[in-house]
């Protein structure tokens, strides 16, 4: 009798324990931040989501090789384009980084505990192009004219020699 009872209580407590355990698990998917620019139609958006949800890692790998090895730089091949659409320039007055849980990539990657390596080298938020590279103060025409003057006539060689002479004279 005592043995039966203990078995029953053991069974009930096990069921209760499991039920509690399951209910404490959060089965909801993480909520992703809305993209900065939206597709024109819901169909396009849904197709993009369906494709990217499963294949983004393969696409990223394939396209990075296209860009690195073959120099193909379309918008489709650009991680910069992904970032500029999916990560806002600022979030609550601060730059959103991949270490923040709200970051588009971090939201899911934190949830599944998979670490993406992209942002060890690539910048994780959109950066204005004019700040990114060298903005020459000269126009293309002026640059072309200057480049054209690098070597245009044999006079230049004489110039060079005379400049060498003057510089050595100065040193003496």
């Amino acid at each position: 009798m005592f043995r039966q009872l203990s078995k029953k209580t053991y069974f009930i407590s096990l069921v209760l324990f499991l039920a509690l355990g399951i209910s404490s698990c959060n089965s909801e998917q993480p909520k992703l931040m809305k993209a900065v620019t939206q597709f024109d139609s819901d169909q396009e958006r849904d197709a993009h989501i369906a494709l990217m949800r499963y294949d983004h890692k393969d696409l990223l790998r394939h396209k990075r090789d296209d860009t690195m090895l073959r120099g193909i730089r379309t918008k489709d091949n650009s991680l910069k384009a992904c970032i500029s659409c999916h990560v806002p320039k600022e979030h609550n007055g601060k730059i959103l980084r991949h270490t923040d849980p709200e970051h588009f990539c971090a939201t899911c990657h934190n949830y599944v505990a998979a670490q993406p390596d992209c942002f060890k080298c690539h910048v994780d938020h959109p950066v204005d192009d004019d700040k990114a590279g060298v903005a020459s103060t000269l126009s293309n025409k002026e640059l072309d004219a200057l480049h054209a003057s690098v070597v245009t006539s044999s006079d230049k060689l004489v110039d060079n020699k005379s400049s060498i002479n003057t510089s050595t004279q100065e040193k003496q």
Partner: peptide, 8 residues
């Protein structure tokens, strides 16, 4: 951090 977008 904050690398140039064109130069990872």
């Amino acid at each position: 951090t904050d690398q140039k977008p064109g130069t990872p």
